[in-house]
């Protein structure tokens, strides 16, 4: 049953071209900053307009900085793309009413939510991994070496943050029938967590939004810090709890007693 529901989602994402544009957007986001920063001196020179004597001090970037440029794009625009992708994944079906024809069949509500969640993860992670590979490729060419195992570590730890965003969006999908409210609430929640984390500083050291901070340290030092470890554990626990809450909410909304 799960497989049937999941396959339908994957097919739908294929039919509405999400399998094409989402990976393309993620590649674009990943390579945009590393490439423009590398060629910035040349661009400035060709644009001209500067007196011969003017000297512009441009910062030099390390390979770790270059990879982090991609990560920071994902933290803003990448999250936005995920929210746009997922805002109607369940709520839209409730709003249009098509969900009625699915839920009058003997379908498990839990499996329904899980299939939606997994299909979203498949698409987002495929795009994210492809994007990071592209970023890694250009970083290695333009800035210097980042090892493959380090790339995998970045993908793993930053992937947790994206997983968190996807799960929050699924949760709001089970709460409201309006895709707009889902998008607003998801962005609000992730932005709110970031804000609170930066305000409270050290007291919220293990907040999921700090993952990117610790990833930067990891890239510089090469060691997985204890903060990163704890943040990972906290993130996984939070994701599991939000997922359970979504399943619970959805079951509650469509309570059916078989007898």
């Amino acid at each position: 049953m799960m497989k049937v529901l999941f396959k339908k989602e994957v097919l739908e994402n294929w039919r509405n071209k999400k399998w094409i544009w989402v990976p393309l957007v993620f590649i674009l986001l990943a390579i945009m900053d590393p490439i423009t920063n590398y060629y910035l001196p040349d661009i400035l020179e060709s644009v001209g307009g500067l007196e011969g004597g003017a000297v512009i001090e441009l910062p030099t970037f390390s390979p770790a900085d270059a990879i982090m440029m991609s990560v920071s794009q994902y933290s803003t625009l990448g999250v936005l793309v995920i929210v746009l992708l997922s805002m109607g994944i369940i709520s839209g079906e409730r709003k249009s009413g098509v969900i009625e024809l699915v839920l009058v069949k003997p379908v498990s509500y839990t499996k329904f939510v899980l299939a939606k969640w997994l299909s979203l993860l498949l698409l987002v992670f495929a795009a994210f991994i492809i994007g990071m590979m592209a970023s890694w490729y250009y970083t290695n060419i333009l800035y210097g070496e980042i090892t493959f195992s380090m790339l995998l570590a970045v993908i793993f730890y930053y992937g947790l943050w994206l997983l968190f965003v996807c799960t929050v969006s699924i949760f709001f999908n089970t709460v409201t029938q309006s895709p707009g409210i889902v998008a607003f609430a998801t962005i609000g929640t992730t932005a709110g967590i970031s804000l609170v984390t930066s305000l409270l500083g050290i007291r919220l050291a293990w907040s999921p939004t700090n993952l990117s901070v610790y990833i930067q340290e990891l890239l510089v030092t090469g060691d997985v810090s204890s903060e990163l470890m704890y943040t990972t554990i906290i993130s996984i626990v939070l994701i599991a709890l939000i997922l359970l809450a979504s399943i619970y909410r959805f079951n509650r909304t469509f309570i059916r007693r078989s007898q």
């Binding site: 009413g97 098509v98 078989s258 007898q259």
Partner: peptide, 21 residues
């Protein structure tokens, strides 16, 4: 009594909506 009663029911809403794709 013990099975999900939805297996025994077929339902057509007033304005059925399908996946148009």
């Amino acid at each position: 009594k013990s099975i999900d009663r939805r297996t025994l029911i077929g339902y057509l809403p007033q304005q059925p909506v399908f996946y148009s794709w």
